[in-house]
Amino acid sequence: MSIPKTHPFAFDPTYGMRLEELLAIEPPEEPAGFDAFWEARYLKALDVDPQPMLSVSKLSHPDWHVRDLVYVSTDAFKIGGWLLLPRQGLVKRGLVVGHGYGGRDQPDLNLPVEETAVIFPCCRGLSLSRHPPISENPSWHVLHDIDKRDAYIIGGCVEDIWLAVSTLVTLYPWLSGNIGYSGISFGGGVGAMAIAYDERIDRGHLALPSFGHQPLRLKLPSVGSAQSVQEYQADHGNVLETLRFYDAATAARRIDVPMLTAVALFDPSVAPPCQFAVANAIRKYNEIFILDAGHFDYTGSAEEEAVLRDKIGQFFRVP
């Protein structure tokens, strides 16, 4: 193991916990009405026609046709992103790839998948889906309408993922039931919520998932968006009323498709206990891949990421 020994943070990003302790973390107590809340949102999202619009991108790659994409999400929100189509072979699988809280300025053109149509959506308010007055700064974006349970922006971002799936089904109807999801950090957290209620998604990869075990997320010292939420809670004191309905670990208990979850032992941005709460909640078909650290450069990171990348390629391989 190469868990970082030195770091610039005023707190310990391992929180003094060893692997055995992390693997024992359970999801938090869930609020009454959690399923009804998300099932109603999912049915609403299914009624939306994504009306995808494609255009030739300035980006090019020897293995992929790259298309700029715009589709319609809930609340008539226009979502920008990219669609990759394989230059070789047929389109046999679909994949939606989420992003971290830094957004995305281009698709990952080196994905280890073949014969797959891949959508890279930018969730509402971020990157190609920027929409003032929603802030692109993660520390402000994560607070947008946090005082309104039904309007909190994270719920809209989950719906943006569902509409990305709808876009794939609209463009390639034969992919329904053969669509995967892959997301890191922010994209891992919203991905857990999306997969839990979308039967069209047949497998998922979550890396360093955020939004897990919200009561712990409010308590454990962190940097980035989690710190912003903690500061808001210190000032207002009522944020958990909303956050309990946006808990990736609570949602993950509902996931019953094959999963590959990558979680870190050291992470200043997404506390490891919160990541493991998500991974541990997935009771079936889940492989947990342990990283020494997340959201931090460390010795051995390239080697670990190469091994994980190979696993991701195998995980999403077309049968």
Rank of each mutant, 00 (worst) to 15 (best):
L143E: 04
G81D: 06
N137M: 08
I154T: 12
I255F: 08
H144F: 15
R93S: 02
Q214W: 07
K44T: 09
A306G: 02
A277I: 09
I119H: 03
P138I: 14
R317T: 04
M259D: 03
S73T: 07
G33E: 06
S135C: 06
R41K: 15
D198T: 09
W38V: 02
A36L: 11
N110D: 13
R309E: 04
I161Q: 08
R124N: 06
L19K: 03
S166W: 09
H295D: 08
R253F: 05
R317C: 05
V239Q: 01
L128P: 03
L22R: 06
G180E: 00
L260M: 08
L260Y: 12
D108L: 05
L206R: 02
V56Q: 06
T167W: 10
R41F: 07
I25N: 02
W82I: 11
V318C: 11
Y197V: 15
K44V: 10
P13C: 06
R309G: 11
I288E: 01
M1K: 09
R67I: 01
F289E: 07
A45P: 08
T6S: 08
P112M: 02
G125H: 09
G189E: 01
Q106F: 10
L206A: 11
V307H: 04
V257M: 09
L168G: 05
G155F: 10
R67G: 03
T250F: 01
E231C: 02
S185K: 02
R253G: 11
H99F: 07
G177K: 13
G103F: 07
R317S: 10
A226F: 07
E26N: 05
D47K: 13
I79D: 03
R200P: 00
A10E: 12
F245W: 14
A226H: 12
D108N: 13
E231M: 14
I79F: 10
D108V: 04
Y15I: 09
L220N: 04
D292C: 08
R244L: 15
S185F: 12
Y197E: 00
R93W: 00
G300K: 00
L218P: 01
A207F: 11
Y152F: 15
A24F: 13
F37K: 04
T242E: 04
A164E: 02
R200G: 00
T299F: 05
P31N: 01
S129W: 14
K219R: 10
S301C: 07
V165E: 03
V270F: 01
D35V: 05
F11D: 14
Q233D: 14
K5E: 14
S182T: 02
N137E: 13
L163E: 03
L85M: 11
L260Q: 10
S55W: 12
D49W: 07
F11A: 08
E21G: 13
W82F: 09
D310Q: 12
G33K: 09
V169I: 15
F276M: 09
V223T: 15
W140A: 09
S135V: 07
H131N: 14
E30H: 07
L143R: 15
K78N: 10
A32S: 11
S222Y: 06
Q214L: 05
H61I: 11
Q88S: 14
S2V: 00
G180H: 08
H141S: 05
I154F: 12
W162A: 00
Y152A: 02
S225E: 14
N178G: 08
S55L: 09
V263I: 09
A151Q: 12
S127L: 07
A196L: 07
A40D: 10
